[in-house]
């Protein structure tokens, strides 16, 4: 009997592995086919190579820029701005949420303003930020913060508010004050919500920073894209885009790892 179950289990595991490898190879195949088709289409002039470039010229440009050292500064600038925007927005948003939760009067007063600010396209504030903070890093970081701040505040506040009141009663029955409720119940209960806003914020911070760089910067990947666009170098535009995609994915997986670590605690 035991060996039969073992055999079935082995069979089950094998099947799972097969499916997993099939999925992976199909994904790989799609990637290779896409790059290959792009290259062929560009060489045979099915698409305009001036506009759509080609994988090989992007690769060549990447190599050149790495060798002459002109790429790294742009990557570092953009990455720093994005990380700063991401961290500031998350910390500030959670703090605002805590204040709203702590003082119900404030949250009732702030409610319509938060709704308006959330509905407004934050990118439209770009020009005002540049005038207020000057055309530099601070305006770009502010852009990255602003775009995710309100939504972070709202999501985290809602999660604070939706904490099961019975857990709160447990703490109150032990004579717990608001600080105990926050520390022992509300904050830990909201950690999953905070982490899922982190995931959203990764994407939003990139949007804010790239738009900010479009508007003012002299450095960064957003700057490279605008520059490439102006001098009609679309290979440069596509290269920047690719680097952004890869870095955003890495940051997103970073948050995913953090999430798993906290879950397993």
């Amino acid at each position: 009997m035991k060996t039969k179950i073992d055999q079935a289990h082995k069979h089950f595991l094998q099947k799972e592995r097969t499916i997993k490898s099939h999925v992976f190879f199909t994904q790989l195949l799609i990637l290779i086919a896409f790059i290959g088709l792009w290259e062929v289409a560009s060489r045979l002039q099915w698409i305009n190579p001036l506009l759509f470039s080609s994988p090989s010229s992007i690769g060549r440009l990447f190599y050149e820029k790495v060798v002459d050292g002109t790429l790294s500064i742009h990557v570092v600038v953009t990455l720093t701005e994005t990380l700063a925007g991401f961290v500031i927005a998350t910390v500030l948003g959670t703090t605002f949420a805590a204040i709203l939760w702590w003082i119900p009067f404030v949250s009732r007063v702030a409610d319509p303003y938060l709704v308006i600010m959330n509905a407004m396209p934050k990118v439209a504030l770009g020009p005002i930020l540049i005038v207020a903070l000057g055309p530099g890093y601070s305006a770009i970081i502010a852009m990255g913060v602003l775009i995710s701040l309100i939504i972070t505040t709202l999501v985290v506040y809602n999660s604070f508010r939706e904490t099961d009141p019975n857990y709160i009663k447990v703490v109150q029955m032990f004579g717990g004050k608001k600080i105990h409720i926050f520390k022992e119940v509300t904050l830990p209960a909201s950690l999953p919500a905070i982490i899922s806003t982190l995931k959203v914020n990764v994407g939003l911070s990139w949007v804010g920073v790239i738009v900010g760089e479009f508007l003012v910067s002299k450095q960064g990947l957003g700057y490279l894209m605008i520059y490439g666009f102006q001098v009609f170098n679309f290979t440069l535009v596509l290269l920047s885009l690719l680097i952004i995609a890869i870095m955003a994915t890495i940051m997103y997986s970073g948050v995913g790892i953090l999430e798993r670590k906290l879950r397993n605690r």
């Binding site: 099961d164 019975n166 857990y167 009663k169 447990v170 029955m173 022992e184 119940v185 830990p188 209960a189 950690l191 605690r265």
Partner: peptide, 11 residues
């Protein structure tokens, strides 16, 4: 106080 459910903190 003992509640209808245990309300042990899951974390």
């Amino acid at each position: 106080y003992m509640f209808q459910q245990d309300y042990l903190l899951p974390w």
